[in-house]
Design a protein around this nucleic acid. Sequence first.
RNA 1: GCCGAGGUGGCGGAAUGGCAGACGCAAAGGACUUAAAAUCCUUCGGGGGCAACCCCGUACCGGUUCGAGUCCGGUCCCCGGCACCA
Length: 806
Amino acid sequence: MKPDYDFKGIEQKWQEIWETQRVHEAVDFGVKPKFFGLIEFPYPSGSGLHMGHLRAFTSLEIVSRKRRLEGYNVLFPIGFDAFGLPTENYAMQTGRHPRSVTDDNIKTFTSQLKALGYSFDYSRVVDTTDKDYYKWTQWIFVQLFKKGLAYKSTAYVNYCEKCKVILANEESQGGVCDRCGSDVIQKEKDVWFLKIRDYAESLLDGLEGLDYLPRIKTEQINWIGKSEGAEIDFAVKGGKPGQKLRVFTTRADTLFGVTFMVVAPEHPIIAENAGFISNLRQLEDYRAETRKKNEFERAHVNKDKTGVKIQGLTAVNPINGLEIPIFIADYVTPDYGTGAVMAVPAHDTRDYEFAKKFDLPIVEVIAGGDISREAYTDIQNGVMVNSGFLNGLSVKEAGKAVVGKLTADGIGCKKINYNMKDWAFNRQRYWGEPIPIIYCPKCGAVPVPEADLPVVLPPLDRYRQSETGESPLAGVSDFVNCKCPVCGADAKRETDTMPQWAGSSWYYLRYIDPKNPNALADYEKLKYFGPVDWYNGGMEHVTRHLIYSRFWNQFLYDIGVVPFREPYKKRTAQGLILGEDGAKMSKSLGNVVSPDSLVRDFGADVIRLYTMFIGDYESSIPWSNAGIIGCRRFIERVYNLLDIADLSQDSISQKREGAVNRLIKKVSEDIECLKFNTAIAAMMTFLNEVTSENAITKGELRILLLLLYPFAPHISEEINELLGYSTILAKSDYPKYDPSKLTDAEIELPVQINGRLKGTVRVAAEASLDEVKAAVRANPALSALLSGNAVKKEIYVPKKILNLII
RNA sequence: GCCGAGGUGGCGGAAUGGCAGACGCAAAGGACUUAAAAUCCUUCGGGGGCAACCCCGUACCGGUUCGAGUCCGGUCCCCGGCACCA
């Protein structure tokens, strides 16, 4: 007799055995083929693991365990993305140092992960807030700086005048300060940027060979936002001599239809020609209004077109010499294209609205629409009109002709633009990697010499920004004051820190060589383990995080530090787990389900299994406690198979050959394409079959255990041991199926008459049409339906269907 | 507005163009029990019929096909992402 199912004891026992035997540690330069499985490392928040982590981690946990049985040297690491706002805010409220808060949280996370039996290689844990780690984050920044890919410029940041702090976007949602509720304004600030735009084309190209889910590729392509068009110079009258206004357009074909110009309120043409403009005050007022709006409002709330005409300046259309007015309007943004557009109201919806509002002329240059009602924007159809030498051409031909002429005249050229903005890279926060730059009055911004890295975060009494919005580090004079590494003069350190995206942009590399003091990772080890074979995470990270880290990897490849250009061969994404009420799980809604209590009540195996069984892996799904019991029953019933198993039979019984082979195929293939729910369902079906027949051989049971092992490893190991096997499953081989034994000799073939199902006949799987027809005649019900009717047509798809048309 | 993914029982969900609803939950009935829990058995999309069986059914309208949840055209609705991108 076997003991009762004591999941607590069993799970602890096997976790210890695996740890002692070190079965989950990856071997540097191992002889087996390597597999690098990566999950997005968690932010160690104070509330511990949540259900989303379980769903995200369990999938690749299953794949990783399967790969080990398949003979791979598996690197399945874990770490912590521990810099960030919540910890800093918590530290501010409680007076505790973020370091000790982080350490505690990491401890909690680690024990939770271990209790779930995840087979991470805990000997390679990475913590982005460890100075031995962020030394290399800083080192990468220095390399970017040296290659001219990090630069300083001004930009607008969210600022609360009452709290006197700069706010992150998530702290200023809806244009209101998170802390005090007052309005957030846009304040001009020095900002560090990384030139990710220089890598736009490369990031686009690189996608081609990658095995990312199609929707993930699409999101990245949209995010990069490549558009091909032309830049055109318009001469400006009334301003400085030789003043020009350069625009970007994708519709050079419509140049004859330009009736006015619009520039962003921030456009430099205003300051540069201030002396020639008569309504400067009015323009500045409008600009000030614009600045009050954050990006959200500018894009969403302000659907109504507004703007102000620049009095004193006009532009000249280079194609027809027409003199046209110039406006400023906030629908034109300063950081896309040239911050100036040529307005073609007849063929652009926004320009159309603006022209209507300001009563500007609308000139049709493409026939086919009704411009008295709306802008005509179809570029596929339509013929050029009112366009001089372009008349009669198609839109495409006209575009080419215009760009050709402008290029010849030296006032325009082809141009590609990207929607993706450069990466704003500094934060006025304490709990982040200090940006390793020193400002020297003589030498300017100088990178900290590599030998002096890391620039360590000093201890602090208070974590608040200064009244001017400077980082808390600005108040630490020992930190700020230093010598210029170039000339030795008195200098000051940069006091801003990096965004949370920094540490997570290269962590997968550090897993390969986590303790290396001389390089971010050894080149040969990178060659062996890299790139990541399979990366799984949330859809919310497939643009920013995934693009940022691809950018860094491509850069590190370009400077010869990393031996592969693309970091992730394959990327998948799980759906959200919602609260039982169908809303996003959140503390404020009180619908959060804690993995801790579930593991306590049901055990890790049941929870892991249920998390994968609950539904389609890629869809959002409401959590339901009610369903867990089904997985608990399943596991107990598998355990109870010990009572009926025929221990004398190591082989697979003749009658079960088809079922066992199909099961192996189904489970192993479903795991590879994220269909965990149907893999589990197949095992349940198999279990139902053997229990209803009350028979299973020892050999059949072991195969079931090997298939179940990646999902529910503890109980599988336990049953395997009770069966008397001396090799633990963790060191066993994954079962293979025999393709020739997938179908049973006899099948139930559905029979349709006139396309409607009328019954089934039992025939050999490879039966001929004549044999099937004989079986139909032998079936009383079917032959009765056919009697007296001539069969006009017979459709027979072997193993699928017989359809008789009468 | 654009891009993407969807719409199937009371619920979560299955279904290379070939028996719609696998598997699980919930529910109902029964067995066991002094009783309950657990477990086991049965039923479980809707309608009709004493019954064998018949009819309807995968958001809606139409099409292709021997055969459509699946393919094509159109409509509606939900979800995710991006958004005045010139």
